[in-house]
Design a binder for these strands. Structure first.
Length: 214
DNA sequence: AACTTGATCAACCGCTGACGG
DNA sequence: TCCGTCAGCGGTTGATCAAGT
């Protein structure tokens, strides 16, 4: 990795371009700048803000982490159902899937799929018929009733398909955390507990940026 | 307690399509 | 039409942490 600067014309030739994890200071600069000037052309934004980052990096950081409407924390059972259903329909169109999960990013959904679901499916061996099959069943449950599924029910649905028959084994891997059945559960805000173990979080930054004036 | 292994996720890379000159 | 720039997307990597031995 890191053999050369980013492609696609969005990279700068600047040898001083910073890479790697973002610092709190960088986050603050980016948040403040966007709060004052809005999102714009990312390359010029990065320069104007005084960040030694590529526009691409700034955009990614903003979209995946700093945006105020980014919802962090565990993927709920309901969200998982949606992900599986849409993935069955569209495949790896993560951004498209993410549009149906308010507050979730394509990166997050992609990671979730790869680390949880795909791994499980690979274990089961086959995939193709699985998706449509589970999708149909999920559709039945999700659209024909107003009832919101809880974790147990979600797993039962998966278990009812031949290929997801061991899905109960996922239970210990999938941490549904504070899933709260609600007609609007997709919009449930992130709880404090969900991010408390990180040294600093976006929650720390947003109030700070407000106090920074502007 | 020390080491190994596996899981998670932020961030990067490379590609593609849209758009404007 | 061609070319350069940019945003956006999907795949991949690597750091970190937790669990297991």
């Amino acid at each position: 990795m890191e053999k050369r600067e980013s492609s696609g014309g969005s990279g700068s030739g600047d040898p001083e371009v910073r890479k790697g994890p973002w610092t709190m200071e960088e986050d603050l600069i980016l948040i403040n700048y966007i709060a004052n000037h809005g999102e714009g052309v990312w390359n010029s934004l990065a320069k104007s803000a005084g960040l030694k980052r590529t526009g691409k990096s700034c955009r990614l950081r903003w979209l995946n982490y700093l945006r105020p409407d980014v919802r962090r924390g565990n993927i709920t059972a309901e969200e998982q159902l949606i992900i599986m259903e849409l993935h069955a329909k569209w495949g790896n169109r993560w951004s498209k899937i993410a549009k149906h999960l308010p507050g979730r990013t394509d990166n997050e959904i992609k990671n979730f799929w790869r680390t949880k679901i795909q791994k499980y499916i690979i274990k089961q061996g086959e995939t193709t018929t699985v998706r449509s099959q589970s999708s149909e069943i999920i559709n039945d449950h999700a659209t024909s009733t107003s009832h919101v599924l809880n974790t147990q029910e979600t797993m039962e649905i998966y278990s009812s398909t031949t290929s997801y028959q061991h899905a109960n084994n996922m239970d210990h891997q999938l941490n549904y955390g504070n899933y709260v059945p609600s007609s609007d559960s997709m919009m449930m805000p992130l709880s404090v507990e969900q991010s408390e173990e990180i040294g600093w979080t976006v929650d720390d930054i947003w109030p700070m940026h407000l106090f920074n004036g502007n």
